[in-house]
Simulated scan of single mutants.
Amino acid sequence: MGLIHKNNQKAVYKIWLIFFALLFLQQGLISILSANSPPRLFGTVEFKTVLKDMPKWQRVLSAEKKNPTFTDQFHTLLPKNLAEKWQTIEKNFPSFSTQEKLKAVNMFFNQWPYRTDSSLFGLEDYWATPKEFLKKSGDCEDYAIIKFFALKYLGIPEEQMRIVVVKDTIRNLGHGVLAVYIDDNIYILDNLSNTPLSHTTIRNYQPAFSLNSQFRWAHLPVKKKK
């Protein structure tokens, strides 16, 4: 009986060793996955789907594919003073720091005056192509769209950028911005600010969805523990 009891103790001891080994392994894997996973936009949980049922955005993509706005001759579409500024940005862009790159493009297109869709196109919601924006200006998502294509032309991979539709909880309004994923952070390019800000510093934006030319993401807020 004593021998059986000792064998039982050894078996239980081995089971506990295996349990703790698996527990530590699981925690290690979670840490690794967390370290390698991208930051969560405005702290939300996101669900990735194929891009569909977005006719306003798909019209912009189609227009840019057929006749790109950003080429070596882009400066010819601009007034002389702005053309010179753009050529300076384009020339110096490779030597800029991350913040300088984003700020230069953000500030450049924020020079266009804000115009509502109803005043320009007689519609409640219209997504302008970059060429339409250059001619007429636009509203919040139109700034985000032209910055998206400008940064893509200047060498920022499209996979690192998204147009984001959010709710501004302070103004209680829908709003559009550009999110750029760089250096384990997400920078927000906004027509309301010339300085790109980390998404972690912006508390009043709740993203509804984000997209690029291939995918769309739905965003859900994380419930805070009481």
Rank of each mutant, 00 (worst) to 15 (best):
H5N: 11
V177R: 07
N8H: 14
A128C: 07
V165F: 15
E64I: 08
N185K: 15
G2T: 09
L22W: 08
L23G: 02
A150G: 02
K135L: 14
I170Y: 10
V45Y: 06
I182M: 13
I15S: 10
I156N: 03
K152Q: 15
F70W: 10
F24W: 12
D183K: 10
L178C: 09
W217K: 01
Y114D: 02
K80H: 11
P157G: 06
H75Y: 15
D184R: 10
I163S: 11
G155T: 08
K56D: 12
F24Q: 02
H75F: 14
L29S: 09
G138N: 04
G122W: 04
F96N: 03
N7V: 00
P157E: 15
Y114S: 00
L25T: 13
A179R: 05
Q206F: 11
S198W: 07
T169I: 13
K226T: 15
Q9N: 10
M161R: 07
Q58H: 07
P68T: 05
P130N: 09
T88V: 10
I186Y: 00
A21Q: 02
V105K: 05
L102Q: 04
S37F: 11
N204L: 08
Q206R: 15
N191S: 04
L33S: 12
Q160G: 05
K135G: 06
L29P: 06
R203A: 13
L197M: 13
P38K: 13
E46M: 03
V222T: 12
N67E: 13
S210F: 05
Y181W: 11
K131Y: 08
W127R: 05
D190C: 06
G138L: 11
D183V: 01
N36L: 15
S118N: 04
L134A: 11
K147L: 01
D190R: 03
K48F: 03
H175D: 07
E46F: 06
Q27T: 12
S118A: 10
A208R: 13
A179Q: 03
F70N: 02
K131S: 10
K52D: 05
N106M: 03
F209N: 01
K224D: 04
S97W: 01
A63M: 12
N204V: 02
N204G: 05
N204P: 12
F24I: 13
F24S: 11
P55E: 10
H5K: 13
P157I: 14
I163R: 00
I170P: 01
S34N: 15
N81S: 14
P94C: 00
E132K: 08
F93I: 04
Y181C: 10
Y187E: 05
E132H: 08
L178A: 06
T129A: 09
N185P: 00
V222F: 13
S119H: 08
P39N: 04
P68F: 03
F74A: 08
A218I: 11
T88S: 09
